[in-house]
Amino acid sequence: MINENGDVILSVSDLYAEVDGTEILKGLNLQVKAGEIHAVMGLNGSGKSTLSKVLAGHPEYHVTHGDVLFRGKPLLDLEAHERSLAGIFLAFQYPLEIPGVSNLDFLRVAYNAQRKAKGLDEIDVFDFDDLIEEKLDVVKMDASFLERSVNEGFSGGEKKRNEILQMALLEPKLAILDETDSGLDIDALKTVAQGVNQLTTPDNAVVLITHYQRLLNYITPDYVHVMADGRIIKTGPKELALELEERGYDWVLADAKVEAAV
């Protein structure tokens, strides 16, 4: 939902970032307001995943230039966990397995870390059980998932649903979904998309990083951005995704070059 008067949730200006000495982001600009859904598309290697990791605070990604404001405050000085506590959520492209830690314990520790940061008392095991029971519905997950180790032995679809479950629990102000749709069959994709739609409110925002237009049949973006060579080179309405699906990326890249030359 485009809301011209909505609060600015995320403001990225002229961002440059590198990993292992290789510059990946090269002057990226992006503004996301409350209530909006942004899709970021682009070819492999265009810097989409790097953007998500830089915003979430991965320690191996270094910002060399530019600014990021999150809800009006500088983001880049915060550590990864502080960004989470401030309201940023990254759904991982490849969620990690944590053997030996039950999903339930992990979710409770994360939830309580957030409560603590808000100055609230930690929630006890029983209250948490009730809360998580409710959230399981969002992603149609069976309670037996909670007893298993975090993501261990989960199928691709189960891992992605588990990411959305975490999002449902932590209720972020900005959710960045890094290729959450990749590798999903159509049923799992629908479940994940429904979950995301259910969690979208006028107060929060979503950035969907995706390769495929398919996801956008189920989650309707307000803006579609095309990334290439570490920058956003084109922004358009949701129809842009369909055009990209049909015509590929070459024409956008060509247009961008022409503009750059001018």
Partner: peptide
């Protein structure tokens, strides 16, 4: 694993606790 620590951190868990 640094990536495992980052995964937990991205859920609001401090590095030490992770």
């Amino acid at each position: 694993e640094a990536d495992e620590i980052f995964y937990l951190q991205s859920r609001g868990i401090s590095q030490d606790q992770a």
